[in-house]
Amino acid sequence: MTMAALDTNTPVMEHEDTRDSRRLGIWLTLPAQILVLFIAVFPILMQVYISLTDWSPLDGIGWWQAHELWNSFANYSDLMADDRFWSALGRTVLVMAICVPVEFLLGLGLAILFVDDFPGRRFLYSVLLIPMMVVPAVAGYMFFMLFQSGGPVNDILSFFYGAPVTIAWLADPDLAFFAVIVSDIWQWTPLMFLILLAGMVGVPEDQLRAATLLGASWATRFRTIVLPRMKTIIIIALAIRVIENFKVFDNFYIMTGGGPGVATETISIYIYKVTQQELIWGYVAAVALVILIALSVVSAIAIKRMSRGVSQ
C-alpha cells in the first residue's frame, strides 16, 4: 500500500498540474471557439439549409420554416446557367489579374528605391503609406469625385491636351473599369511596398557585398541573392493581396455601384445586389456557398503548399 502510494504520488501531482493547465487552456480558447462557431460553423449550416429552398425574407415565414419552399438543387442548377454570376466571377478574377501584378511591380520598384538610406527616407516612407490607411469607402468617395467629368482628372488631362477634356469616366463601361482599377492600385500598392521593403531590408548586407566583391552586377545580385531570399515574403505578399482583392467591394460599389450596367460588378457586388434588389435569398445562399467551398479548397491547397515552402 505504502509503496503503491509512494509510487503514484509524484506523477499524480504532475498529472494534476498538466490537467489544470489544460483546463485553463480550454477556458482561455473558449470565447474564440464560440465566436468562430457563431459566425462560421452555425451560419454555414444555415446557409446550406436555405440554399436548398426558395426562401426570401418577404415570404412571411421564418427561415426555420424554409423547408416548406424546398426546391432540391434548383438553385444550384440555376447558378450554372446564370451568366451574370459567371461574368462577375470572371471580372473579379480579371481585376485580380490586373491589380495584383501591377501593385506587386510598383511595390517592388518602390522597395528598391527605399532599401538603402537617403535624406528624407523615413518621412517619405510614412507619406507613401497613407493611401492604405484611408478608409476604403472614403477612398471610393474620393475617386468618385476625382473622376467626375468636371473633376480634377479631366482638369489635368485638359492641361496636357490643351483643350477642355470632359470625359464621363464613370459612365463608360471600359473607362469605369479602368477607374476602379486605378483606385485599387492607388490604395493597395503601399501594402505591397510595406511588406516587400520589410523583406528586402532583411536581406543581409554582407551577402550583397560578398556578391559584389565576387564581381556580380546589380542585376545579378538582385536575381541571385535578393529575390531568392525574399521568396517567402513575396509569396505572402501576393497571397494577401489575392485574398483581399477577391473580396473587393467598398470602393468599387461606391464609385460605380457595379455599373454602368454590370461593367464593374465583382462577385461581392453581385451577391450584394441580388440580396438587396432581388431578395431571393435561397439562391444567394447557394451562390455564396459555392464561393465559400471553392475558396476553402483553393486556400487549403495554398496553405498546405505555402507552409511546406516556408518550412524548407
Partner: peptide
C-alpha cells in the same frame, strides 16, 4: 569594388 580583384572574408 566589383573590379578590384579583392578577395574578402567577412566576419
Amino acid at each position: 569594388m566589383s573590379r578590384r580583384g579583392v578577395g574578402f572574408v567577412f566576419q
